[in-house]
């Protein structure tokens, strides 16, 4: 990653949007890294959960959007369970994913993708929830 001059500008619309739909107050985080330490998927994450929150606090939303971590998060809620400051990190990362998905034209799951991935063992529900979440 190239050195970027950090100017904390947390008035960005995406940041407001993330705060709104997640209802999480990121200022409560004291950077104790309990979430990253306990995260089973942290090995495959380029930005660890506590770093995601730090970046949010600094308003560096772009970096998070380009990261792989938010897609590797398995929503197992270990981080939320163990956070000593009662921050719902899993919910926050879900909010970040939704901010990306809900950007216009970015839907990740179009109807014509279906034939490619469907097989007889796949439950119907997977398609329905996939459309609901990833199709805009």
């Amino acid at each position: 990653m190239i050195r970027v001059k950090i100017t904390p500008n947390n008035k960005q619309s995406q940041l407001q949007y993330i705060r709104e739909i997640s209802g999480v107050n990121i200022n409560k985080c004291i950077q104790c890294t309990k979430c990253s330490a306990g995260c089973p998927a942290s090995a495959r994450m380029d930005i660890l959960p506590h770093e995601i929150i730090r970046l949010l606090q600094l308003g560096q939303v772009e970096k998070i959007f380009h990261s792989k971590s938010i897609w590797n998060c398995a929503s197992c809620f270990v981080c939320t369970e163990r956070c000593p400051r009662n921050i719902d990190i899993a919910r926050l990362i879900e909010a970040i994913r939704l901010t990306i998905i809900r950007q216009p034209g970015k839907s990740k799951f179009k109807p014509d993708d279906v034939p490619g991935i469907i097989d007889d063992k796949m439950p119907q529900q997977v398609l329905v929830s996939g459309f609901r979440k990833y199709n805009r």
Binding site: C32, T33, K34, S36, A37, G38, C39, S42, L48, P84
Partner: peptide, 22 residues
């Protein structure tokens, strides 16, 4: 080490401590 321990796994007679250096 600035960071919290996530989990401790007993392995043999050792204790594997999982943490993060923030």
């Amino acid at each position: 080490i600035k960071g919290m321990v996530g989990k401790i796994f007993p392995a043999g007679d050792k204790l594997i401590v999982h943490g993060v250096d923030s």
